[in-house]
Design a protein around this nucleic acid. Structure first.
Lengths: 392, 392
DNA sequence: AAAAAAATAGTCAACGTTGTCATGTTGACT
DNA sequence: AGTCAACATGACAACGTTGACTATTTTTTT
């Protein structure tokens, strides 16, 4: 089968001169319909995998290679009539520019990388989806690059990646995006990138950035708990490496203070973004005589762990202890009772990040060269049964 | 910063002739140490993003371009001494072949695509990890392609993908890999691909395949339940579109029959691979007067839903009802009690798939051209508390 | 020792695209 | 009419690599 196809491809290549004649015949001799198009010709030859090249388009549109290139790249100096003709040819041949050739030739490349070291598959898949969607819209290809944030040679690793795959830029997800040593080094090396981070205000720095205002969202969650009458609320942290841990905790503390509740440091525990962490910490908490009446998990997995621990201790949620999480992962939807949480559309965030990156890399290609190079997202509170009773 | 870098890159390019002289000086005038290598030269110039090309390597190794190419591609007709010299130069310059140029030039390409439409992020991330690892080992780059299996133009979409990105082949995950209309069409078009599917024996067909023997694994799970004294066991199916649903159900039924237990069709329910599906079906089951004593969920999400339903009805697991899942996802580890399940190393499966694909695409490059073009994985039973009591 | 065979190494063009520069074409203004 | 912009198009080289072919060296055979 393969051999056959390759044979056909060769056949086409070799008879290249003949093709325009066929084309001419149909164009001159008779009206459009019923004519033999180049596309028909290729298809009839069984040439499934042959790609129409810019050359084919040029021949069909009867212009030069360069003019086709101009149309493809939306350069302004093309007469409208010519543009139309070329676009028609592109459509007829189902022409798509060859990424390898584009990337090879130009000072510019149409490939970007997505860098992450995130243990949460839901997050990763969401980010991938958003970036990929934006890539397709803008004609980019995507190279995913899961990696180890703690690997010493991470900066060199990323540089090699950019060089080997000729990447135009990187989208960097937390927690790597929040490591200033890394981002500074990349900046020094002149690598374009956009960061997705957790922050409560636009970050300083030249590189574009999408920041998720976890602080504001955590503030809302905390106020929600307070509104339900809770004053002894525990906070279960994730890894400190994730800036979101810090932001969420700050938002939590700010809400307490604003409502005149003293922050009890013994109720603010460190930990990790995992079920087990939530489980262990909560076991300890439940064994205290002055146990809290509510628990705020830094994410849903922690909260799910907390829920399991509370149950294990024979207590009920939300009557004995209210629980809130963060992220709106399936863990929060599928636990019993479902968990109050805060939602962020990961894919939308990632899409926006990609937009900012392109705007940074090619200021001319987009109209809004003067748009800010950052963008804010504020996760929204989702009230669910895990915090429902205890009305104020 | 960027402008600066580009300037330096230009500077290097323009002074190309000078570089070998510097090199020569250090090579001739004095012993190796203390000499000025080309690499040093580039780095001192601030030329972070400049790539060493095959040309640079050739100059340093004092051989022709083609010879370097031969070394890179492990062609046999290179004298050992020459090979050593070239490899040293490659190392010195930290040379890495340019993917774009390779893919552009050759009849062969070093890019493959990963095609999936799987709602389970854990599965997706696992497959990505495995394929990516194999890609790195073998010098391939990976293009991920999440897509909609029910989209009418899916075959054309995949062809366009292969053409536009010059992919050498595809790794196709379930359920798309189990759709014969699609795989047949791809075969007809001469596209190389490997499938990851659920099956109980090597599938017919020319294309390579990794099959996961869900039937055998489900058989084990069912026997485990039977061994714990259960005879009324319900089976909650996933989507029929996923062949794994069929296989797991067949394994389940076979185990019952082998142990002289009649298959009660009213205990075999259809459904979907979701928490909600498990929840709803189990609600119905629990309301029956002749409710089952055990439930086998076609995956862990279903089983987690079943667990929630059983609880909602005021029954306990495993004393009133035992529950088993499949897949060893976090849902099974983090539920209370943790769920008995069956595990498959998704990333190992994906890695193996990639290996088979390469073997198919380049029979010459690997030694084992005659190795079978399929491979079996049998998930292993993991006993956990959700099925623990009721000893036989 | 010469001839043939095998091994190693090199030359050149080509992959599909875009940047640079040159050329042609239009219309507006002396 | 003749000059000059401004616009529109084209010719050609180059990106980094490899396939086909050729040239050289080494080994084997006669």
């Amino acid at each position: 089968m393969t051999t056959l196809t390759i044979f056909f491809v060769r056949a086409i290549r070799e008879s290249e001169q003949d093709v325009p004649d066929i084309r001419k015949d149909s164009a001159d001799g008779q009206p459009d319909s019923g004519g033999v198009s180049l596309q028909d010709y290729l298809v009839r030859k069984g040439c499934f995998l042959s790609k129409a090249t810019i050359k084919d388009v040029a021949r069909v549109a009867e212009v030069s290679l360069k003019t086709v290139s101009r149309v493809i790249n939306n350069e302004p100096t093309v007469k409208e009539a010519t543009r139309k003709k070329v676009q028609a040819a592109i459509k007829e041949l189902n022409y798509q520019p060859d990424m390898s050739a584009r990337n090879l030739r130009g000072s510019m490349s149409y490939a970007i990388g997505l860098v992450y070291d995130n243990p949460n598959p839901y997050y990763v898949v969401g980010v991938q989806e958003g970036v990929l969607k934006a890539c397709r819209e803008m004609g980019y290809s995507l190279q995913i690059h899961p990696c180890d944030a703690h690997h010493d040679g991470i900066v060199e690793e990323l540089c090699d990646l950019v060089r080997q795959s000729r990447l135009a830029g990187l989208v960097i997800a937390p927690p790597i995006s929040e490591n200033e040593t890394i981002t500074k080094a990349l900046e020094d090396r002149g690598i374009h990138f956009v960061r997705i981070i957790s922050a409560s205000s636009p970050p300083a720095g030249a590189s574009p950035c999408v920041y998720v205002n976890d602080r504001a969202a955590a503030h809302s969650v905390a106020e929600h708990l307070i509104a339900h009458g809770h004053t002894r609320i525990a906070f279960l942290s994730g890894e400190e490496e994730h800036h979101s841990t810090f932001e969420r905790r700050e938002g939590f503390k700010a809400a307490l203070l604003e409502h005149g509740i003293a922050v009890d440091d013994s109720l603010i525990l460190d930990g990790a973004y995992s079920f087990d962490s939530g489980l262990q910490r909560t076991m300890t908490l439940m064994d205290r005589s002055d146990r809290p009446t509510a628990i705020f998990g830094c994410n849903d997995e922690i909260a799910a762990g907390a829920l399991a621990a509370v149950r294990t201790r024979g207590l009920t949620v939300p009557d004995d202890v209210a629980i809130a999480g963060f992220e709106n992962s399936p863990f929060s939807q599928q636990s019993r009772p479902p968990l109050t949480t805060a939602a962020q559309s990961t894919s939308e965030i990632a899409r926006q990040a990609m937009m900012l990156l392109v705007n940074e890399m090619r200021p001319q290609s987009t109209d809004n060269a003067e748009a800010p190079n950052y963008s804010e997202f504020v996760p929204e509170l989702l009230e669910r049964p895990s915090t429902s009773t205890r009305a104020t």
